[in-house]
Amino acid sequence: MTTTFRFTVNGKARTVKTEADRPLLEVLREDLGLTGAKYGCGEGQCRSCTVLLDGKPVTSCVAPISAAAGKKVVTIEGLAKDGALHPVQEAFAAEGAIQCGYCVPGMILTTAALLERTPRPTDGQIVDALNGNLCRCCGYPRILAAVRRAAEMRGGANAGQD
């Protein structure tokens, strides 16, 4: 049983005819060729698969494609605008917040959403927002530094320790 779903991915209108219970992650990766979102656990526990759905971070490995119908999806491939990196992307590269890099797209999108709602997060707010995102290289200190830097770059000076 297939259904037709219409949604926007990285600003582009997309139509997919597929099973309604297929994970959004697999439609993005397999049907649309957007492999930036990663499979890490398939149960929403590691958030490597994070994409933005109408601006909110969701675990696309457990979100069915039907949940994206009529909505705007942003993946890591859609974050840079006209070749200019998003401040969060720039901050992750500049702070070297990358070891194997597999968790990084999910970390960046989660951070981008955090800074939208909380432009000047405290360290506590950063840790709370990212606690669901696993990094097995355990590069958390560099990632924290990158999020602080991204907040500064966006103009909200970091509120510092809480």
Partner: peptide, 10 residues
């Protein structure tokens, strides 16, 4: 890491 840009853009 030298290929940071490739990682952060997916």
């Amino acid at each position: 890491r030298l290929d940071g840009r490739e990682i952060v853009t997916g």
